[in-house]
Amino acid sequence: MKRSGDARAFRVRRAFGQAVEGEAVVSTEGFSPRYDLDRWSGVISRPGHAMEGVNIKDKILVVPSAKGGVAAGWAFYDLKYKGIAPKAFVFGVTNPVMVQGAIFAGITITEGWSRDPYRLVRSGDIVRVDPRRRTVEVVRARD
């Protein structure tokens, strides 16, 4: 059963970038492009990660937190250069590295959730992230 668009939207606290639409990947675990990602294939490679085996290319990643190191600053740019970058990051809480890296690479990034996204968005849903309006909404639910 499909719910209305309004019912499946939430606001974000801070945001940067272009409005984008794409397939959501909803993770219950934090993310680091250093710790968790095979940066040559774009597949989450860390054994046991909540998103293990998922390819992040062109996805909209809904992630609770940022993990670890400063290398993300270069890593996002390189993902974009290789054509395997995600379209957006929708973080619960993030850190400056993710923000610096995403802005440097021109990838949309947001922080803070007005509502629990785990009740609103499922992996496979098509979502729209609009930094100017500071909103994330499900535009088409997964079949």
């Binding site: 400063v70 290398a71 600053g73 400056p96 590295v97 890296g101 440097f104």
Partner: peptide, 9 residues
């Protein structure tokens, strides 16, 4: 200092 990633540093 904040974490200043490569391009930010």
């Amino acid at each position: 200092s904040n974490f200043e990633a490569g391009p930010a540093a």
